[in-house]
Design a protein around this nucleic acid. Structure first.
Length: 467
RNA sequence: GGCGCGGUAGCCAAGUGGUAAGGCGGAGGUCUGCAAAACCUCUAUGCAUCGGUUCGAUUCCGAUCCGCGCCUCCA
């Protein structure tokens, strides 16, 4: 009955029907943050996309086991923690906590596992040992270990890159002469002075893991050697995900991941976000400017994930207006439905329900899903205008929207209560209105507005709305 | 240079080989003490440009122009 979801698989560059391997539970891995600073809205675009994916898979009826890694050891975390005079752990814990606070603001559901790299060093070491045993990795004189891409013939398949054409780029560091091939990548990095006291013992001496190996070790630990979905930003396709495939499949001999889903980048005012352009925003920056996490979520959510998202303050304005409309509709629906038990859906709502599910099943076509949502708002208002929406049907529509919000995560309003003085102003305005003292009533309305609330006079009495 | 993505109304953004969803914004009207919200009407003879295929293309093919991403550790 329900349509099988179809997703665009980077591996095949095609939209393919998706079903979990075991038919019931989707196992997915999502590349998480490097906890060296507050995450920016470009990062959160990816996490909101992954949240939509996870919520939709559940909405569709499957279980989900999602793993998101926390990279808490790398060049940046080491450098910044030392600059701050803090231990690595102390430093990364601060930003890990900030990350989870931001996730809550954006209404991003928690994954089942958030493994930290530093807590899985033994898993990584074992994986590297397997690769050495099988001849896919070699130790360099300084004690680093590299993966030999020459030993892995399908290297470059995901990114569609020809390994032979890979040339050293500007960012290749000085110590790379240790490698057999410039495109070989580090599995284990021998300690050097810049690492300070950050080091673990290994069969190859003291050092720390390379970046890619954590994702292979932790994903396979929690999800098995072959799992359903791996996601990330498209900038991770190469080299990160390419390298994950190489080291994982070389070690296990099995396919690593069935579906690779990548989201496109976010740009701001038509340009790449950068500190020098002054268009670089963290979520905290936007909250400080008075935007809500819900509004930011709306903007990040409602552009299809494979489309470049142009983030602007105009788009936040539009989000605020659209959410206000949704809130007004919901409030009106509540007024009609009351506490009556739901009946069956009116035809227009049942149609929209089907369209909503089908839209998301079509590679997460959020635009079409939102169109279905606004069709419901429109038809619902029309029905209520003509008093042709019985309470039981209104209750059914309300229940349907609550169900949709399991996927969208935007319909539930923020709980903001007016302060007692605003409530008092509203009460006095009602008195003035009852006494037909329009000038005074209007003055009070202006005063209420100045305090951030709009008053709507409805048949059920005055209704307050933020801003 | 290699690989890839995109150019649809004022802004954002779906989509289809048969004649352009939706959101924001704007104009007029209904309702309202006045508003707000809602509702009604209007807001792309055209989907970067030029060719081609076709009965018919925004949708397929080719070329051109413009914008963007990745090419070794940025979601």
């Amino acid at each position: 009955m329900t349509p099988l979801p179809r997703f665009y698989n980077t591996l095949t560059r095609q939209v393919e029907p998706f079903e979990p391997m075991d038919g019931r539970t989707v196992r997915m891995y999502t590349c998480g943050p490097t906890v060296h600073d507050y995450a920016h809205i470009g990062n959160f675009r990816a996490y909101v996309f992954e949240d939509l994916l996870r919520r939709f898979l559940k909405f569709h009826g499957w279980g989900v086991i999602q793993v998101m890694n926390l990279t808490d050891v790398d060049d940046k975390t080491i450098r910044k923690s030392r600059a701050a005079g803090m231990s690595l752990k102390e430093y990364t814990q601060r930003y890990t906590q900030a990350f989870f606070e931001d996730l809550d603001q954006l209404r991003i559901e928690r994954a089942e596992h958030y493994p930290a790299a530093t807590e899985h060093i033994p898993d990584m070491i074992r994986l590297i040992e397997r690769l050495i045993e099988k001849g896919y990795a070699y130790q360099s004189p300084d004690g680093s270990v590299y993966f030999s891409i020459a030993r892995f013939p399908t290297y470059g398949r995901l990114a569609r890159l020809d390994p032979a054409s890979l040339r050293p780029g500007a960012r290749v560091s000085q110590d790379e002469y240790e490698k057999d091939n410039v495109a070989d990548f580090a599995l284990w990095k021998a300690w050097d002075e810049a690492d300070g006291d950050v080091a673990w013992d290994s069969p190859w001496g003291r050092g720390r893991p390379g970046w890619h190996i954590e994702c292979s070790a932790m994903s396979m630990k929690y999800l098995g050697e072959t799992f359903d979905i791996h996601t990330g930003g498209q900038d991770n396709i190469f080299p990160h995900h390419e390298d994950e495939i190489a080291q994982s499949e070389a070690a296990t001999g099995h396919p690593f991941v069935r579906f690779w889903l990548h989201c496109a980048h976010l740009i701001v005012d038509g340009r790449k976000m950068s500190k020098s352009l002054g268009n670089f925003y963290t979520l905290r920056d936007l909250l400080q400017r008075g935007w809500t996490g819900r509004e930011v979520r709306y903007v990040l959510l409602t552009t299809h994930y494979r489309q470049h998202l142009n983030f602007t303050f105009d788009s936040l304005d539009a989000a605020r207006a659209a959410l206000a409309r949704l809130d007004d509709f919901r409030a009106r629906l509540d007024g009609v439905a009351g506490t009556v038990p739901p009946a069956s859906l009116p035809v227009w709502a049942a149609d929209a329900d089907g369209a909503f599910h089908e839209a998301l099943a079509d590679d997460l076509n959020i635009s079409a899903a939102m169109a279905a949502l606004f069709d419901v708002v429109h038809e619902g208002h029309r029905a209520m205008d003509t008093r042709s929406l019985p309470a039981a049907e209104a209750a059914a529509v309300r229940a349907m929207l609550q169900n949709w919000d399991r996927v969208l995560g935007i319909l539930r309003p923020d709980e903001t209560e007016p302060s007692p003085d605003v409530v008092e102003l509203v009460r006095r305005r009602e008195e003035m209105r009852a006494a037909r003292q329009w000038a005074e009533a209007d003055r009070l309305r202006a005063e209420i507005l100045a305090r951030g609330w709009t008053v709507q006079d409805t048949p059920q009495g005055p209704r307050l709305r933020r801003r």
